[in-house]
């Protein structure tokens, strides 16, 4: 359900937001280009402007890397995206299931919640060495790290959301003749979905950073590897290209998640 901002239609408001965003991007790029016009400037060597690093993409036929290790940019983006989405999807479903199970009894809450509270603040990057030992250099490592980055927070959130459900909503379902399984299925799960999904979206940045860090430190493909290849080759153009793609892809995913939230999880309990 797209919400209307008072006075103007929703599409006008979003058009304005897009236009303003584009203008500020253009201003930043313009200043950057102006500052980077002098190629002798040492700053330009480290921070080449877009007109300098974007052509790299076309010159190298959209490929990054050396010889047999090279991969197309498209492939790098997809690999990273698949890792993040799979990790987040598993964490989302898993944390709702775990949150529901924990909420079944007061005792499981008392015993399990402190453990989750201890696990949640661990930076996902900290799991990288462990994951490499267990899963090796594979997609599983990246998915595991994303999962660890969001699962505990989301589980705690699910338990909190279940507690927040107004009692009359549950009493009404019971009053209408719903058994406990159907009450879980038709009231509690839909009631917690939007809150947990919002938190998933907010935690996407953490998951995104985690998978990039994993790609930079251990894995051989993905967007993080593009930046690392640039570092290894002393190629600032490649580093900035990687950074730019990371930024744009991350932003696109965030918008996509927002779209999903508005389309499928728009209600407030």
């Amino acid at each position: 359900m797209p919400r209307q901002i008072s006075g103007q239609p929703a599409w006008q408001a979003s058009l304005l937001a897009i236009a303003c965003g584009l203008v500020s991007c253009a201003v930043v790029v313009g200043i950057w280009e102006m500052a980077g016009r002098d190629s002798a400037n040492p700053v330009t060597q480290v921070l080449p402007p877009p007109s300098q690093f974007l052509p790299v993409l076309f010159e190298s036929d959209f490929k990054v890397g050396l010889g047999s290790q090279s991969a197309s940019i498209y492939q790098s983006v997809m690999v990273t995206l698949i890792r993040v989405s799979l990790g987040m999807a598993i964490a989302f479903v898993g944390s709702i299931a775990c949150g529901l199970l924990i909420s079944l009894s007061k005792w499981s809450e008392l015993f399990i919640l402190p453990l989750l509270g201890l696990m949640a603040p661990i930076a996902p990057i900290a799991w990288v060495p462990l994951a490499l030992v267990v899963f090796g250099v594979s997609n599983l490592t990246a998915i595991f790290i994303v999962f660890m980055g969001v699962f505990f927070t989301l589980t705690i959130a699910t338990v909190a959301e279940i507690k927040r459900i107004p009692a009359p909503l549950l009493m009404t379902a019971e009053n209408l003749g719903g058994g406990s399984f159907n009450r879980w299925r038709w009231v509690i799960i839909p009631a917690v979905l939007p809150g947990v999904f919002t938190l998933l979206r907010l935690n996407f940045i953490a998951a995104w950073m985690a998978v990039l860090a994993a790609e930079m430190t251990g894995l051989r493909d993905g967007l993080g590897t593009v930046v690392m290849t640039g570092r290894n080759l002393f190629n600032s153009d490649l580093i900035l290209l990687g950074i730019c793609i990371i930024g744009i892809t991350g932003f696109a995913v965030d918008r996509l998640l927002l779209l999903i939230q508005r389309k499928f999880f728009w209600w407030q309990v």
């Binding site: 107004p166 009359p168 909503l169 009493m171 009404t172 379902a173 009053n175 209408l176 003749g177 719903g178 058994g179 159907n182 009450r183 038709w186 009231v187 839909p190 009631a191 209600w267 407030q268 309990v269």
Partner: peptide, 25 residues
């Protein structure tokens, strides 16, 4: 029981809310 506060399920339409008693059974 009809409660004083709004106890309609916000994720269901009017039609689905009225049919909720059947669905939850």
């Amino acid at each position: 029981m009809v409660f004083q506060e709004n106890t309609l399920y916000p994720w269901l339409t009017v039609e689905q809310n009225i049919g909720f008693g059947f669905k939850v059974r």
